[in-house]
């Protein structure tokens, strides 16, 4: 053994567990506003992720136990499950998770070596391959025309069967961002759109509270020093400034900046996805550039792109730039300050 002989009692597993813990409030809010289907999605994604992680570790001749217990596969599964519609068909969940774990993570070298955020790769594959299923979101319980009980939801996920007389449209709806895009296309005035029941005080009905819960979890991570302030601050600020500017110039076609922050995947991205250390830059300045870039791309894709939300593509596009960003943002060494 060599010095230092002392070590802080932290571990990769501990970090991952804290991040998982920070997601719990958001999951609780999700269940409260949209029903328990998301729990099934999370469970299925987790089981798939762990099983495939074990298989891949075996194939790559790595010790299974320490890696399986590091919690990274579980975190990928949770983030993916929280990014896709909660009542998606089982094969979609499995496909997305499999892509994330097998291709995005292990084929690139496993924990620590993957250049792209695995959960976002899984998401991107799904939204390109299954656009219909990926836009069937559960409507908030408070505004849904009818309810589907838990067992029937599971039935729909696994057997694609609905109970007699139930209509898919009655309990699903487009997301607030999606609705905004469609309605603006129909030339409806912004005020009228925002008064639709799918919108709450700031963001989407229900969804805004889930976003608030992500924010709370993120603040916990900041307090625990698991993440640094640079990424969430830069991401949120960029989205706020970009959307705020457009909102000021053209309020009829651009929602308020607060709306942009409280809808879609802004909050989960700011605190949980962009902050993935493996696929992000390591220097403080690099983090600011990386997160601002992701924020700007998110806004551009939301406003002009074909997809309702731009987070996944923004993250993946910025992931590509990380080595370059790191190389150009090396901080000056002690005594060699410019």
């Amino acid at each position: 053994m060599n010095s230092p002989y002392l070590a802080q009692s932290s571990s990769v597993a501990q970090i991952m567990v804290k991040v998982l813990l920070a997601l719990v409030p958001a999951i609780a809010a999700y269940v409260w506003f949209f029903g328990p289907a998301v729990l099934v999605t999370i469970a299925l994604a987790s089981a798939t992720a762990l099983a495939l992680e074990a298989v891949m570790l075996k194939l790559r001749k790595k010790p299974v136990k320490p890696y399986l217990l590091d919690g990274s596969a579980l975190l990928t599964a949770w983030l993916l499950a929280l990014s896709i519609p909660p009542m998606g068909p089982w094969w979609m969940i499995v496909t997305g998770t499999a892509f994330a774990i097998v291709i995005a993570k292990h084929l690139y070298g496993g924990l620590g070596s993957n250049p792209f955020n695995p959960a976002m790769v899984g998401y991107a594959v799904l939204i390109i391959s299954f656009p219909v299923q990926m836009t069937q979101w559960l409507a908030p319980l408070s505004i849904a025309q009818s309810h589907l009980d838990f067992m029937s939801q599971i039935g729909y996920m696994f057997f694609h069967a609905l109970p007699q007389g139930a209509q898919l449209d009655a309990f699903t709806s487009a997301t607030p961002l999606d609705t905004l895009k469609t309605q603006l296309h129909l030339d409806r005035p912004m005020a009228a759109i925002m008064s639709m029941p799918v919108y709450g005080a700031i963001g989407g009905t229900g969804g805004q509270w889930v976003a608030a819960a992500y924010l709370a979890g993120g603040l916990y991570l900041l307090q625990q020093k698991i993440i640094s302030w640079h990424v969430p601050a830069a991401f949120i600020a960029t989205i706020f400034i970009a959307s705020g500017a457009f909102h000021l110039i053209d309020p009829a076609h651009h929602a308020s900046p607060w709306f942009e922050l409280a809808t879609g995947a802004t909050m989960i991205c700011a605190f949980f996805i962009l902050t993935d250390p493996v696929t992000g830059p390591t220097t403080p300045r690099g983090k600011l550039i990386f997160a601002s870039g992701a924020g700007f791309l998110t806004f551009v894709i939301r406003t002009y792109g074909g997809y309702p939300d731009g987070v996944a593509f923004a993250v993946l596009l910025m992931n590509i730039c990380v080595p370059l960003i790191d190389a150009y943002t090396q901080p000056s060494v002690f005594g060699k300050k410019k």
């Binding site: 320490p66 924990l111 060494v333």
Partner: peptide
């Protein structure tokens, strides 16, 4: 001085960089 656990891969968390008194990038 308890034995240290087996090393895991670097996850680029940059805690080393934050703790470095010489302002280096230990992970690199």
């Amino acid at each position: 001085f308890p034995k240290k656990p087996q090393p895991m891969p670097c996850i680029r968390c940059a805690r080393c960089a934050e703790s470095c008194p010489a302002d280096l990038q230990p992970q690199e």
